[in-house]
Amino acid sequence: MTGVRLPFWSTLIVLLAVATMIALGFWQLGRAEEKNALIAKYGASAQDDAVVRFPTSSHAAEDVLYRRSQVTCTQLLATRAVAGTSATGAKGWAQQATCRIAEGGEAVVALGFSRDPASPAWGGGEVTGIVAPGPRLVADPPAAGLEPLAKPDPNDLPNNHLAYAVQWFLFAATAIVIYALALRRRGSTTRA
Rank of each mutant, 00 (worst) to 15 (best):
G105R: 04
T85H: 04
Q95C: 06
Q96N: 11
T85A: 09
D116K: 05
F113A: 02
G84C: 01
P55W: 08
L76P: 08
H59G: 14
D63R: 15
T88V: 05
D48A: 13
C99E: 05
R67E: 13
A102V: 09
G125E: 05
S57D: 11
R53K: 15
G123L: 10
A90L: 03
Y66E: 11
A83K: 01
F113Q: 04
W122M: 02
A87C: 03
A110D: 10
A90P: 03
A81H: 01
R68G: 11
V109K: 07
A118H: 08
D49H: 08
Q95Y: 04
D49M: 06
V64Q: 12
L76I: 09
Q70I: 13
Q95D: 06
F113T: 03
V64I: 13
Y66R: 13
R68K: 15
S69C: 12
C99F: 06
L111N: 01
Y66I: 05
T72C: 08
Q75I: 12
V109Q: 04
D49L: 06
G105D: 03
A50K: 12
A110P: 04
D48Y: 11
W93A: 07
A90K: 09
T98F: 04
D49I: 02
A78D: 13
A107N: 07
V82A: 00
V71H: 12
S57F: 11
G124K: 04
G123E: 11
S119I: 00
L111W: 00
V51Q: 11
T79H: 06
K91C: 05
D49K: 09
E103W: 09
S86Q: 01
A61D: 10
A87Q: 10
H59Y: 15
K91N: 12
Q95L: 07
A121T: 04
R67I: 15
V71W: 10
R67V: 14
R80L: 02
H59A: 15
A78Y: 02
A94Y: 00
G123R: 13
W122N: 02
A118T: 05
V64E: 11
S58C: 08
T74C: 02
A90R: 09
A60R: 15
R100L: 11
V82G: 00
W93P: 02
G92M: 02
Q75W: 10
D48H: 10
A61V: 06
